[in-house]
């Protein structure tokens, strides 16, 4: 499969969940192959994945999608250490803390994803969001620029909202 994709030395490879069904050792081989591709042929890779481990070890920039929209985007460190969207907190809270350290209770996201046939009027995540405000259900949140590379779509980040909660407060 990968051989077919790289046969004509493309500038861009889109890898859609390339390792989802694979065992970790095989997954590691595939990821090594993709990394080699990036380094040797200078191929750009769009990696679609739900595996935060794979993302942390492969990507330079991350776009988090929810309900058909990019809700947060940034450099990999910005996403993993300075996440600003409640959905991003939810994702990071759902997995066990990486590496050693004490065992913390998992913080799952309640409920299930929205029905895209009848999308909610405001923020798609509002129904599952612990920090949701009235405006969230009514209006699509605007894009907030957090740095040159870091953006998020959430009403909590709007300057009109008095107090901005941080990731620490979300229990991370």
């Amino acid at each position: 499969m990968i051989a077919i994709a790289i046969a004509c030395e493309p500038k861009l490879v889109i890898a859609d969940e390339p390792t989802t069904a694979l065992d970790v050792t095989i997954q590691a081989q595939i990821l090594d192959l993709l990394r080699g591709l990036k380094d040797k042929l200078e191929t750009s890779i769009v990696l679609i994945s739900h595996d935060l481990g794979v993302i942390a070890s492969m990507c330079s920039r991350v776009f988090i999608m929810y309900g058909g929209r990019v809700v947060e985007s940034g450099l990999v460190d910005e996403i993993f250490y300075e996440a600003s969207h409640p959905y991003a907190w939810g994702l990071l809270g759902s997995i066990p803390e990486p590496g050693e350290g004490r065992r913390r209770k998992l913080v799952p996201i309640p409920g299930s994803p929205p029905d895209l046939m009848a999308p909610p009027a405001g923020c798609a995540f509002a129904a599952r969001c612990a920090k949701a405000m009235r405006v969230c259900a009514r209006e699509q949140p605007p894009v907030t620029r957090l740095s040159a590379t870091h953006r998020a779509e959430c009403w909590l980040l709007d300057p009109r909202v008095a107090k901005r909660p941080s990731a620490e407060e979300a229990g991370l």
Binding site: T25, A28, L31, A56, S57, M58, V76, D77, P98, G99
Partner: peptide
């Protein structure tokens, strides 16, 4: 050893 080292770590700094 091989199995545990192959598991990706969901922490960019440590993954590097």
């Amino acid at each position: 050893k091989a199995l545990l080292s192959a598991a990706p770590i969901a922490d960019p700094r440590r993954a590097r």
